[in-house]
Design a protein around this nucleic acid. Sequence first.
DNA 1: GTAACTGCAAAATATTTGCATCCTT
DNA 2: AAGGATGCAAATATTTTGCAGTTAC
Lengths: 137, 137
Amino acid sequence: MNATQTLKNFDLRHTNGREEVLNLFLGADHALSHGDIENGLGPDHDRVTIYRTLRTFLDKGILHKVLDDGGNPKYALCRETCAEGNHHHDHVHFKCEDCGQTTCLDQVIIPVVALPNGYSRKEMNLLIQGVCQECNK
Amino acid sequence: MNATQTLKNFDLRHTNGREEVLNLFLGADHALSHGDIENGLGPDHDRVTIYRTLRTFLDKGILHKVLDDGGNPKYALCRETCAEGNHHHDHVHFKCEDCGQTTCLDQVIIPVVALPNGYSRKEMNLLIQGVCQECNK
DNA sequence: GTAACTGCAAAATATTTGCATCCTT
DNA sequence: AAGGATGCAAATATTTTGCAGTTAC
């Protein structure tokens, strides 16, 4: 997955800011908040543009919002399994209570749970909180 | 479950505001946001006090934070299954994409999912999005 | 050239803190 | 009486909007 190519794939113009944000996500193994991105990019990036970039990426389906117990939203790339035409909507995220990082557990599959009558399901998000591999050492 | 008694149980002073907030939750079958509470209580309630009331209830374990896909956090009562001494931490919530309401599905149990090696779990939150009973009619 | 994107200023919204006053116990 | 809770003002943080100027295509 390459930033420039991705932008092209999604019919977005190539700009410095977008490329840098994408690369941040490509290099991260955990979900990023708006603040993480601001820090990761260095000082000469406009806060507003980052907001707009994130929204654009969300709209296009490049990123998805990650549920967190805390206040502020985080974002992560939609990986392999939800690429073009096969965009599935189940996500499992792990929030480490020690280091605070939220990781996408792409390999974990949410078992089917029975819903009460009359409910229909479209998307599922499972957030597991605990202690991660690193912090358990 | 009774407001006055609940406050006593949790070693909290009985005040008008707290009782009214608790009653709102007792009468609601879905999770409430700060805004919902402000509306539900009428105009002569201080926004700041509501913030503090919510935090107090969270700290005491009377309420729990409900994960939502949207921006703003919601809250719901900890019901039967997580009463005194048996406070378990798995929650299933259903967010209807039509009416926007988030409901706690207390009866639904999250199946055990296998975590990668080294991870330990403490708490799980499952958010299912779809269409609810009412809106499916 | 044109539409899309950015950057700045400012508005709107959300949340927290300080402090004097009031109320519960 | 004493400590906790409230209400108001104000500080802080977060997100959105408007608009002029710039850039990708």
